[in-house]
Structure formats: C-alpha cells, structure tokens
Design a protein around this nucleic acid. Structure first.
Length: 280
DNA sequence: CGCCAGGTATGAT
DNA sequence: ATCATACATGGC
C-alpha cells in the first residue's frame, strides 16, 4: 500500500481483500452513511472523515496524512494480512462459499465505549433503528465536529443524564442500561483500559457486570473494539449457522480467528435467511 | 396491522 | 442449571 495526495484528496493504493461498503454495512458499526457522491462519511473515536473505494484504491477526504496512517488504516484493519487469512479460511468449504458470496469484509478496530453502548442498544432491535438511536444520542449529547456530525458522547456526558433526558432517543428499555454503563465506567467499577489487557473470560466477566450486558453484547465488544479475534458473538444467526452448517461444531483449526470468520458467516446467513430461518 | 428484531433480566421449575 | 416471558419502539 502507498499513499499519495491530489489536492486535498488522499489516495491509498494497492488495497486488496477489502470491500469498504460491506465492511461498513455488515452490522459491526452503525455511524457510517453512504452519500450521493459515493463517499461514505462517518465518525470514529472523535474523528470525522469521508472515504470512497474505487477498485484497489481508497480515497480519503476531510482528514490528513497522519490520521490516515496512524488511525484510519488500523481502524479498517488494513494493516492485517487478510490475504493469508483468507487463503487459510478457504480450506473450509462453508467458509469458502461465504467468502465467495461476499468477499472483503474486514474486522474494524472500534472505540470501546462507543462499541459497548452501540451493542447495548442493539439488543432485541433492528439495525436501521439501532442507527437511528445512536444518531440521536450523538446529536443530543456529543460534541459537534467539523463536517457536521457529532462525536459519540463520553461516559461523563451520559452519566450526567437522567432517564427523562434520554427520552428523545426513543431507545425504550435500553436507556437505563446506558446510564448504568456510564456510571460504572465513570466511577471505575468497569475500567475499559484495563479490559484491554485482560483475557477474554475475565473481560467478559467484567463487562457482564453492567446491567443490560449479557454474553452476546460482551463478546461483540471484545471482538469489535478489543480485536479479540478468537471470540465469536453467538446471536440467533450464528446459532443457525452452527446448527445447520456446522452440526459437529466449528473446526478447531481456525480457533484464533473464528471471530473474523464469523463476519463472513453472519453476513452469509442473513443473506440466505430462507435457507436458515426455520431451525434453531 | 401485526410480526419481529445482532438479547437480557427476572422469576418460575 | 435451564426455561419462559416481558420488555419499548418502530421498520417492514
């Protein structure tokens, strides 16, 4: 990969095994929007940018060279050798089919606090509605950023709120969970920095101490924010995949990376609902 | 209009 | 331990 600049637009060339649209639209993140001009715009960790893909080239605007190198490349996992990973995955026929159906999905490295809140909101909810709630949350409590979007509100900002303050989010029963998460993170009962140093079982134990955080939400945080690639969040779709496509369990061979494989399988399952819907 | 959603807390066996 | 049920809301 190499980066060149053409009047305010940064071009990242030689990008492979990457599909921007699928990566941003596969249910791991909720704050990116496709604009009419083909650019995706979004905010991550308090940074706004616009990005578009043309074959093996990524075009960035509203950011700078250093942010791309130090933040956006790791954010999109463009520093990870997916060629080797996908070659390995291909030895499994089910995974090969899922990757052929929708190649290029990469695991994002997202900010832990935002990821925690996002997946608290995700429970028993539709993806379009998850997006709406998060958008209203950021507009209500986040800091305005250049570009028109707002940052994700900090634990402090959220902890200052009452349930009534959060009513405009229309987040239903989840609002009290958000407040509990904010309080526990603010007072140090849950130390998001320390969780980054813990093994997945200890981390899961800590996270599920937050009201509204069960095993599925905790695992989403471990995978999508802490890059614990061995963790597989078991939602209804992955349970169906397991029951129908892997009746003898997931092959052990890829165990350090099953979380990444999960992304292809999750997307494949949702796109073939008819084949997988009935059983559980 | 009902059905259901990237689940979890709660109370009952 | 395991199992059923309620849960707020609105996209489809």
């Amino acid at each position: 990969m190499r980066m060149i600049e053409q009047n305010e637009i940064f071009l990242l060339q030689g990008v492979s095994y990457f599909d921007l649209a699928r990566t941003l639209d596969c249910g791991q993140c909720f704050r990116w929007r496709l604009c009419d001009d083909g650019f995706w715009e979004g905010v991550a960790a308090g940074r706004f940018c616009r990005v578009r893909q043309r074959r093996s080239v990524l075009l960035f605007t509203d950011t700078d060279r250093q942010s791309i190198r130090d933040f956006w490349i790791p954010y999109f996992s463009l520093d990870v050798d997916y060629a080797a990973l996908c070659r390995d995955f291909r030895s499994d026929p089910v995974l090969a089919q899922a990757m052929d159906f929708a190649p290029g999905i990469r695991l994002l490295r997202q900010e832990p606090w935002e990821t925690l809140c996002s997946f608290i909101i995700s429970q028993n909810n539709h993806i379009p509605r998850i997006r709406g709630i998060i958008e209203r949350l950021c507009a209500l409590l986040g800091e305005p950023l250049p570009g028109g979007m707002s940052s994700f509100p900090s634990p402090e900002q959220l902890a200052r709120c009452t349930l009534e303050d959060l009513a405009p989010l229309r987040s239903g029963f989840r609002a009290k969970y958000l407040l509990d998460a904010a309080q526990k993170v603010l007072c140090g009962a849950v130390d998001l920095r320390a969780i980054g140093q813990m093994d997945p079982d200890a981390a899961r134990e800590k996270l599920t101490g937050i009201c509204g955080v069960g095993p599925k939400v905790a695992d989403c945080v471990l995978l999508y924010a802490y890059n614990r690639t061995q963790v597989v969040p078991m939602d209804v779709w992955m349970k169906r995949v397991l029951a129908v496509l892997y009746p003898d369990g997931f092959p052990k061979h890829f165990s350090p990376y099953w979380g990444i494989a999960q992304q292809f399988l999750f997307h494949y399952a949702r796109s073939h609902a008819g084949l997988l819907r009935a059983p559980l």
